[in-house]
């Protein structure tokens, strides 16, 4: 009678044990496997070392020749240093060549920058037409228009010229029309330009009903302000003496 009562607990203990065992047994294999893999990896490496004929702790066939480890250690530094010097020299040479090419071309973008060139050319030509065309009856109109087209030294140059015009134009009843026939931008750097201008000046005296035409040549130094080109200097190729009073 005691057996039926004693058996079940022992079985349950046995079951628990087996369960524990299985639980315990299942956990160890994983570390055991990994350690086995580690050791096999270590075995391979150690096997390599042993096949090379030295123990893993001692990595020195160099020890037989005492000078070469130092040399081998310095060699990469030396090679890299030489490379650095050579590449540095190359960089300097390239830079000089690039500079030479760019310096030879200069900073003048006349014609190379098509849009800016034709803008400067067109605006200077229009300015010249406006500045030097006048009607004896309405000189103020020309002079007022001139204010927006001139800057710097040209303001003074123009005032001197227009003082003469104011003296003579009403007497002779002059109507002057200036038309730019040829112009070329010789220099254009950023907001500065120099334009060579050929113009035809046609003077009509309504007093005598006579018209005289003459050709003019001059160069205009212009600066770009607020998006539009303004005449800064008019060079009539007479040297500095002519315009010295305008500083």
């Amino acid at each position: 009678m005691p057996t039926p009562t004693s058996e079940p607990p022992s079985r349950t203990v046995a079951r628990r044990l087996t369960r524990r065992r299985t639980l315990v047994d299942r956990t160890p294999p994983a570390p055991a496997d990994s350690s086995a893999a580690d050791s096999s990896a270590a075995d391979f490496s150690s096997a390599d070392f042993s096949s090379a004929g030295s123990s893993p702790g001692d990595q020195s066939p160099p020890r037989a020749q005492p000078l070469s480890p130092a040399r081998r250690a310095w060699l990469p530094a030396l090679i890299l240093g030489v490379c650095a010097v050579l590449l540095g020299g190359l960089a300097v040479w390239f830079a000089q060549q690039a500079h030479q090419v760019r310096a030879a071309a200069g900073t003048n973008t006349a014609l190379t920058d098509n849009a800016a060139t034709s803008e400067a050319n067109g605006q200077v030509a229009t300015a010249v037409n406006t500045l030097f065309s006048y009607h004896y009856n309405d000189l103020d109109k020309t002079q007022q228009a001139a204010r927006t087209l001139l800057t710097g030294k040209a303001v003074c140059q123009y005032d001197q010229l227009f003082a003469v015009v104011r003296q003579h134009a009403p007497q002779q009843r002059l109507v002057v029309t200036v038309t730019v026939t040829n112009s070329g931008v010789e220099m254009l750097t950023g907001n500065r330009a120099r334009v060579l201008v050929f113009a035809t000046q046609s003077d009509t005296s309504t007093a005598t009903k006579q018209t005289a035409t003459a050709g003019a040549m001059f160069a205009v130094d212009a600066v770009r302000r607020d998006g539009s080109w303004k005449v800064e200097n008019i060079d009539t190729f007479n040297g500095e003496s002519q315009t010295s009073s305008c500083g």
């Binding site: 590449l87 540095g88 390239f94 003048n108 920058d113």
Partner: peptide, 29 residues
């Protein structure tokens, strides 16, 4: 140093090449 020098040489070399092959620079000349 070698890398910096290599970078500099690459940059300036490109600069020279592009200047030599720059159409607007050649046009300007």
């Amino acid at each position: 140093l070698a890398l910096v020098a290599a970078g500099a040489a690459g940059w300036t070399g490109w600069s020279w090449w592009s200047a030599a092959h720059d159409d607007s620079l050649r046009y300007s000349q």
